[in-house]
Computed example of a mutant assay.
Amino acid sequence: MTSLQPCVSLLRADSYELSQLRASLEQLLEPLGGMSAFVKPGDRVLLKPNLLTGARPGKECITRAELVYCVAQMVQAAGGQPFLGDSPAFGSARGVAVANGYLPLIEELNLPIVEFSGKRYETVSENFNHLLLSKEVMDADVVINLPKVKSHVQLTLTLAVKNLFGCVPGKMKAWWHMEAGKDSQRFGEMLVETARAIAPDLTIVDGIIGHEGNGPSGGEPRHLGVIGASTNVFALDRALLEILTVDPATVPITAAAQRLGLNVEPADMQFPHLRPEDLKILDWQLPTRRMAIDFAMPRVLKSTFRHFYIRFIKEPISAYAGR
């Protein structure tokens, strides 16, 4: 194996119990140099979990709080200053995090939560030069991507690359569904270019319990017992497809990465622990229904209204009532 081959670290992990999970994560990152290889004292470190929705707590629609907590501890131990950030489909990052049990853990570590909705940064991309990413993401010293393994009614699967779409601020995501979603190839390429522009320093995937079926939120939890990590977000996604025995051609993101020369085949990766064939899942449930990628104008307007209602009316009222 050459040093040019991306390293994809894969392990079995069956528990979110904090001490066990922390030990598993330490072992997972050891071949990559440990957390100190990515985080230096004083670094501002963005932790980007999947904070999709607060509507289905317990259904494993989002990255588990325990994994985020352990990663944040490791960042702090390396001298970094971690903060959470996302731009959920509905509501605020804080509201979704609280609804899914994050609050005790983030309060214990004093983790700030940043909403990707204000400052924007224009990406440099020939085909997507009007795609804006959050300035909070681009200004971070280190970006750690923390996706969840889920099926997806529009994209077959949502993994590490798709999780970075949450760095598009506010409701711009719905408008991009409308603009680029008319062509699945263009939409896949947009997601790949988003990931390439952000270039996360490290990705750690939560596959201990995934979400199969009609995801990203309408499916059901499924125990997988897998965690993975890599500096190459495209290689990690491809390895996960191998584990789930999903044809890469059916996943628009992976197909786009292939066209753009960014895909990596398992034969060209280093696996310091387990290989994908050691973790095979032969009966992972893909969506039983399909939804078009593109959003029509009425749907975009409805989605935008719902987002603002939840974030600026419903969540503030709930927070006030809880005092």
Rank of each mutant, 00 (worst) to 15 (best):
E108S: 13
S125P: 01
K119Q: 15
T123D: 04
C167V: 12
V137D: 05
V124T: 15
L111N: 02
V161N: 06
N127I: 02
I144G: 00
I113F: 06
G170Q: 12
I113N: 04
Y121T: 11
F165N: 10
G170E: 13
K150T: 05
G118N: 10
P112T: 04
A160F: 01
I144K: 01
P112R: 11
T123F: 07
S151G: 09
T156H: 06
L131K: 02
D139S: 14
F116L: 12
N129I: 00
L111K: 02
D139L: 05
N127D: 14
T156D: 07
F165H: 12
P112C: 02
F128N: 04
V168A: 13
V143R: 10
E136R: 05
M138P: 00
V142H: 05
K171D: 13
F128M: 06
V114R: 11
V161S: 06
I106L: 15
R120N: 08
V161T: 13
L131M: 14
K119F: 04
S117M: 08
K148A: 01
G118M: 03
S134R: 07
V168W: 13
S117R: 14
T158R: 00
V137C: 14
I106D: 03
L133Y: 08
E108Q: 15
M172A: 14
A160K: 01
G166C: 11
E108D: 12
T158P: 01
F128Q: 05
I106S: 03
L146A: 09
V161A: 09
S125Y: 04
E126W: 00
A160D: 06
T123L: 15
L132I: 01
S151C: 07
V114L: 06
V114S: 04
E122D: 09
V153H: 01
P112K: 09
L132S: 12
L146G: 09
L109W: 10
D141P: 06
L109F: 11
